[in-house]
Amino acid sequence: MKRDPVVIILVAMVVTIMLVFGFHMVRPSADQAALAGANLKGNMAPEFTLQSLDGKTVHLVDFRGKAVLLNFWATWCEPCKIEMPWFVELQKQYGPEGLQVVGIAMDDASQEDIAKFASNMGVNYPILIGKEAVGDAYGGVQFLPATFYIGRDGKVVDKVFGLKGRGEIEENIKKALAEGQAVQARR
């Protein structure tokens, strides 16, 4: 029996479409989250309420009027460990100008272990215990570190995935400090 090549290609295309469709059906949340993250720039940063290591309830809106460097990290993330001393220095340097570094630990480790890690790193900024829903709101945070730079007006100025150089971090901090200056001036 001779098979028509056109029929074979058509069948293959149908199977491919079904496979692709099925593949995307089983992981809609990841794609939607990634899309959400991609669309954040220029928009208001998603609000959250999280507990800090010292037991305080922290809302993102608490920092309105400040430029926020929002860093998603974990104790098992070696590149995150490289950035943390930079954040400590940059918080000291730019804190008086209105920078607030905020760390969100996306960790399965115990709160004690996270606190121990943060203490070892000499962290001088609030560390919040992350929740998956907050990560999802920021695009899924499928790998770490992930850092969002939020202007004084609460809008996302930039987002950076993976480890970048200290110089790039500092440039983004300056952009975030400059963004929404009018908001601060009105206060």
Partner: peptide
């Protein structure tokens, strides 16, 4: 000549199995 449609069919079927990119270009 019959190899071409077969190859095309194989490529189409295998296309979704190419490693997925998740997040921004990773």
């Amino acid at each position: 000549m019959h190899a071409v449609p077969k190859l095309a069919a194989c490529l189409l079927i295998l296309a979704p199995l190419v490693p997925a990119q998740d997040g921004p270009g990773r």
